[in-house]
């Protein structure tokens, strides 16, 4: 497979990334928590999450963050070097939701060939789940 990485000169502020829909399943939540070594029971035991007032297990922060990072590196290509990943959390992601991730280039740093992409992940039930930015150094 041929992998392409974006060139700094080919990216402009205002460029939009193709939106990504992610199905939020119990499996994604539990397996995502374990893949990030987050063994808090609220991410794999529904009863514990329900005692916290939520309908079911909810996504852990490091999974949300991973999905945001992946969304941007899918766009930038594999030779891009990640410089920053900033995530602010909103409503929880719980099974049965669909999260739509969107992004737009917000800043260019010519000296370092770094572009910053503002990213939002909204679920179809409770709205904003995460918003933040990912900065990557391009070729």
């Amino acid at each position: 497979m041929d992998y392409q990485t974006l060139k700094y000169a080919d990216v402009s502020v205002g460029d939009k990334l193709a939106a990504l829909d992610i199905d939020i399943s119990s499996s994604l939540i539990s397996c995502g928590a374990l893949a990030t070594r987050d063994f808090e029971p609220c991410h794999h035991v529904p009863k514990v999450a329900q005692d916290m007032g939520l309908p079911d297990v909810f996504m852990n922060i490091l999974t949300s963050q991973a999905l945001m990072a992946r969304f941007v590196t899918d766009w930038s290509g594999p030779e891009a070097v990640m410089k920053a990943l900033k995530v602010k959390l909103g409503a929880p992601n719980v099974p049965g939701m669909v999260m739509t991730v969107t992004g737009e280039v917000s800043e260019k740093d010519d000296d370092n060939r770094v572009v910053t992409v503002n990213v939002t992940g909204e679920n179809n039930i409770w709205g904003m789940h995460m918003e933040g930015s990912v900065s990557v150094q391009l070729l």
């Binding site: 893949a35 990030t36 070594r37 987050d38 063994f39 808090e40 029971p41 794999h44 490091l62 963050q65 991973a66 945001m68 990072a69 992946r70 990640m82 990943l85």
Partner: peptide, 17 residues
């Protein structure tokens, strides 16, 4: 390593549960 995994390496394990 995926940069987003940075904190995962140092997380406590199954003992938390």
């Amino acid at each position: 390593a995926p940069p987003a995994m940075m904190y995962a390496w140092n997380q406590e394990g199954y003992a938390v549960a």
